[in-house]
């Protein structure tokens, strides 16, 4: 490195190298986090959240018992309930298999709610379905890239 280079030239040499990009970005993130750390303790948790959890350890659907009767309206604290006229139907729905599980045993709540129906399906498919559209598209695109490169090189 020649000694008579100005400091700006040196910095621009570092920045212009692609290999240093990751380190630069990481450094920037560290700076933001350190500055943010000053304000972090003052971030108050808003107690009025959407889709709040209510736990009922006695229920057979334990971590995911959100109440409601199947094929009836269930109050779900969505952002805009009027946009999803059938919000709550999926939450309360149990397939025959999951109904049988719920009647039989006490510790299968996660399996029951992952089976079609339940609060998570309500959010993922109904009220926030667009998120899931984008997400599956990302999966599609990423695997498109991977399989294109894989096949080209093999």
């Amino acid at each position: 490195m020649t000694p008579n280079r100005s400091i700006i030239t040196r910095i621009s040499v570092i920045i212009s190298r692609v290999e240093n990009l990751t380190a630069l970005y990481a450094l920037l993130a560290i700076v933001v986090v350190v500055l943010g750390l000053v304000s972090l303790p003052f971030i108050a948790y808003q107690n009025d959240q959407l889709y709040e959890k209510t736990l009922d350890p006695e229920s057979t659907l334990d971590p995911y018992d959100r109440g409601g009767v199947p094929f009836g309206t269930t109050p779900v604290k969505a952002q805009y309930p009027e946009n999803s006229p059938y919000a709550g139907y999926v939450t309360a729905y149990l397939t025959p298999f999951s109904q049988w599980l719920a009647d039989t045993t006490h510790h299968m709540g996660t399996t029951i709610v992952a089976h079609p129906g339940g609060i998570i399906d309500e959010i993922l498919y109904n009220t926030r379905g667009l998120d899931t559209v984008v997400e599956t598209s990302i999966l599609f695109v990423a695997f498109g890239i991977a399989s294109y490169l894989f096949r080209r090189d093999s």
Partner: peptide
């Protein structure tokens, strides 16, 4: 810590693994 957070984690996870897949394939290439 709400149900909404959980519904956000699931897409986040799948996005993470698919990006990892693409980037590692680019690395190999």
């Amino acid at each position: 810590a709400t149900d909404l957070a959980e519904a956000l984690i699931l897409p986040g996870l799948v996005v993470g693994i698919s990006e990892l897949m693409a980037v590692s394939e680019v690395y190999i290439a």
